[in-house]
Amino acid sequence: MTAGPWKMESQRSYFGKALIALGRRNPNVVVVGADTTESIKTIDFGKSFPDRFFQLGIAEPNMISVAAGLAAAGKIAFAATYSVFGSAHTYNVIRQNVAYTNLNVKIFCSHAGLTVGPDGATHQMNEDIALMRGIPRMTVLVPADGPETAKCVDAAAAMKGPIYCRFSRTNVPTITSPDDDFAIGRARVIRDGSDVTLIGCGLMVARCLEAADSLKRAGIKARVINLSTVKPLDTATIDRAARETGGIVTAEEHTVVHGIGAAIASAIAANHPVPVAMVGVQDVFGESGEADELLRKYGLTAEKIVDGAHDVMKRRGQGR
């Protein structure tokens, strides 16, 4: 797969439509919301299935526990809002009522990361992957684009147990096709290469592909992996990449503290250690600005991924 040109599409729209299609197929699916339902497109599910949709107001802890109660009575409960409210504000409710209970609650959160934009740091959730992957029994998904977001909805409903899935407010490049394979727990190699591996999640997967194109022009063959499941981590695919390419660059619209870079580094440290460079938010809060401006200012670019590739290849050389 090469980089672009890509169609820019809304993950929220794919999410909303996938929920309705799922609702038609499965009468057991219910949706709870917290005064963000129009924004994240769950309101359309509510219009199609008014008896299976519950608007619970600005009360996210209650929303999560209500979803858990619905799930305890046999429902597949989707709880959806913005990621700062659906992860940080509700952390201990998710921990006790959703994960410890191992219930069928599917938390789908939009507005993850810096690209929330002008709303600023209060709404730019760069720590949710870190929070959620630390909870036992939790599955953590980060779809790369709209079609993959829709696949996450279906896969989440089919899987038993709790799920946290985060995606963007801003339109993102559509890099996958509806026909692509998707399975929870499997990282997908979307471009082969033997010199270095670029592993991204969410909208950073497209930037990994751009970086791979740029590296190719310099004669470097980069493998690109779409890490749409952060937990459970596909260690087989990651270990193979470490063994076969000898260096890894990770890219996430999230803090590098306990994000996918940290997850990957700790996995390969246990098996096949190679140099790692982490592109992500460097343990700081964001600020107001347009999505693209923020990605540039905070170093979430294809250029930084290219720099990371040169860095790991240089360090690997010194070690050998």
Partner: peptide, 17 residues
Amino acid sequence: GQGLSFSVGLALAARMD
């Protein structure tokens, strides 16, 4: 403080069914 919310979910499910 979580149990009443959980009960709301259960009660909604009973009514729905």
